[in-house]
């Protein structure tokens, strides 16, 4: 070490040779963050052009149906013969939860099936990739009003399309269609698991034979999704086989639980919450959080 190269911070001034050296090091240290930030930020993959109108509340009017999943059927226009063109807007709750409880309770209060009413809802729009999701931001208070219809709503179109197999990823539609970017893949996986376990309807994101994106609602064979169980398959490549149906403007796949888990590339060991899902009588157990979702179903 040179005589002049010794310096500790509390000394009044660094030796000149060291001072010059330090200035060069500091300049480098200030260039380094800029360079690394440029590289890392510029290297990010493209995000989907989806939207979440956070902070902007919108009112929508339509018929609420809980079949096959909670949705609001709104009028999207008229065809050439003057017939009504409808669009299904998937309904989700604030946070990572579904809306089924809200509407089941409402149905009990009204004493008639929900499809006998037209509802006025206020919430936040989420949309992209040709699909629309509506978040009931104020939860129960998002239902502003309702009026009785002359006749109950029936699905415009229900077509059985036979047994089919799809390869893709299970996503939660709330995040995928706008709330999060990216709303799929491994980084988002735990969020998708939490959203689906919380009652948001699982959707398969796949591609059709033309390579175009295709979204399919997933329902278990008996018509009821076991939320905690299927949620664990979210955010990873998977193949699902089942009976495909077209219900209005959504494809719905009724899958066989057992086949799905056999198709998974890893063993799924049902944990306590899954057992509870099968045995609703045991709902007071330690995993009541997951189990409550089953109650809601």
């Amino acid at each position: 070490m040179k005589e002049n190269d010794f310096y500790v911070g509390y000394l009044p001034k660094a030796p000149r040779s060291m001072s010059k050296w330090l200035k060069a090091v500091i300049a480098g240290l200030l260039l380094l963050p800029g360079f690394v930030a440029l590289m890392v930020a510029g290297n990010q993959h493209r995000f989907a052009a989806t939207n979440f109108e956070y902070g902007q509340l919108t009112e929508l009017t339509g018929v609420v149906s809980l079949e096959p999943v909670p949705r609001l059927i709104v009028e999207a226009g008229r065809d050439q013969r003057g017939g009504v063109i409808t669009k299904s807007v998937l309904l989700v709750n604030f946070g990572k939860s579904g809306v089924e409880t809200i509407f089941r309770n409402l149905e009990k209060e009204l004493g008639r099936p929900l499809t006998n009413f037209e509802f006025n809802l206020r919430g936040t729009l989420i949309y992209g990739e040709g699909k629309t999701v509506f978040e009931l931001t104020d939860q129960e208070a998002s239902v502003l009003g309702h009026k009785i219809l002359d006749k109950a709503y029936v699905p415009v179109k229900t077509v059985a399309l036979g047994e089919q197999s799809f390869e893709g990823e299970i996503i939660d539609p709330k995040c995928y269609f706008g709330v999060m970017k990216p709303g799929f893949g491994k980084v988002h996986r735990s969020c998708a698991i939490r959203c689906i376990a919380g009652g948001i309807s699982p959707v398969m994101a796949t591609k059709n034979e033309n390579g175009e994106k295709q979204f399919i609602l997933l329902l278990a064979d008996k018509g009821k999704t076991k939320w905690p169980l299927i949620s664990r398959l979210a955010g990873k490549p998977i193949t699902i086989k089942g009976e495909l149906k077209q219900v209005d403007d959504w494809l719905v796949l009724h899958y066989d639980d057992q086949l799905l888990y056999e198709a998974a590339s890893f063993p799924i060991i049902p944990n306590e919450s899954d057992k509870l899902a099968r045995e609703p009588k045991l709902l007071a157990g330690p995993n009541a959080l997951d189990a409550n979702i089953v109650l809601c179903n």
């Binding site: 930030a37 440029l38 890392v40 930020a41 510029g42 990010q44 493209r46 995000f47 052009a49 989806t50």
Partner: peptide, 15 residues
Amino acid sequence: LVFIVVSQFLRPEIT
């Protein structure tokens, strides 16, 4: 600053 500006410029859809 560099991260935010570059991200907003190249990936304006980022949340």
